[in-house]
Every structure is written in structure tokens, then in C-alpha cells.
């Protein structure tokens, strides 16, 4: 299983878009740093994420989300939150980590 990490806002780069195009079924995707902006309801990326979650799991690093003034009730449903320990657990549970810079 691959863990894909995205740390850029989807409004700044197409990292999230390309990641979701190339992610395979059963993989995990973790959004952190500015990547968490993609996890909010009502953005133009919501459908893309919802669709991706039919085959893979999407996580956000909660401290990064909160730091940016976002509340968990605005999270797209299905996205799970992790803290730093949870981030490490995801990494160690993966065969490889692929960062989408």
C-alpha cells in the first residue's frame, strides 16, 4: 500500500489533482500543511475527493487544519483526521510514501 501525501493547496498547484488521478484502489492519501485546504466542504475539489474516497481513504493532519482556522464540521464527509502520531502510524503501515510537492 502506498501513502500519498499532499502539502500544497489545490488552488496553488495541481498536486492534489494529479495525486488523485494516479492513486490506486486501497491507497491512503494524507493532506497536510496547505494541502488541508482541499478537505473543506464547498470547494471545487469536493467532488474529486468524494469520488476518490470510493476506492481509497483520505486523511488530514488535524493540527494543520485547525491552525488555518478550519473546523472539523466543515470537513468533507468521509475524511478522517490524524494527529502527528497518527501520521507516523500511516507512514509505518505503508510500503512506500509518495509525496506530491
Amino acid at each position: 500500500m502506498t501513502l500519498h501525501t499532499v502539502n500544497k493547496s489545490p488552488f496553488e498547484t495541481n498536486s492534489l489533482e494529479t495525486c488523485l488521478r494516479l492513486v490506486r484502489s486501497g491507497h491512503n492519501v494524507l493532506l497536510f500543511e496547505d494541502g488541508v485546504y482541499g478537505a473543506s466542504k464547498g470547494t471545487r475539489f469536493e467532488n474529486m475527493l468524494t469520488e476518490a474516497m470510493q476506492n481509497c481513504k483520505v486523511y488530514i493532519l488535524l493540527p494543520d487544519f485547525e491552525a488555518r482556522g478550519m473546523q472539523t464540521d466543515s470537513l468533507i464527509s468521509g475524511i478522517e483526521t490524524v494527529d502527528y502520531t497518527g501520521f507516523v502510524d500511516l507512514v509505518t503501515a505503508s510500503e512506500r510514501v509518495q509525496s506530491w510537492l
Binding site: 502506498t2 494516479l22 490506486r24 512506500r96 509518495q98 510537492l101
Partner: peptide, 10 residues
């Protein structure tokens, strides 16, 4: 990508 041991991103 899934066949790789290591993926390095630039």
C-alpha cells in the same frame, strides 16, 4: 509507481 521500492519527488 506501485512497483517501486522508493519514490523520490521533485
Amino acid at each position: 509507481m506501485e512497483q517501486q521500492d522508493v519514490v523520490l519527488s521533485f
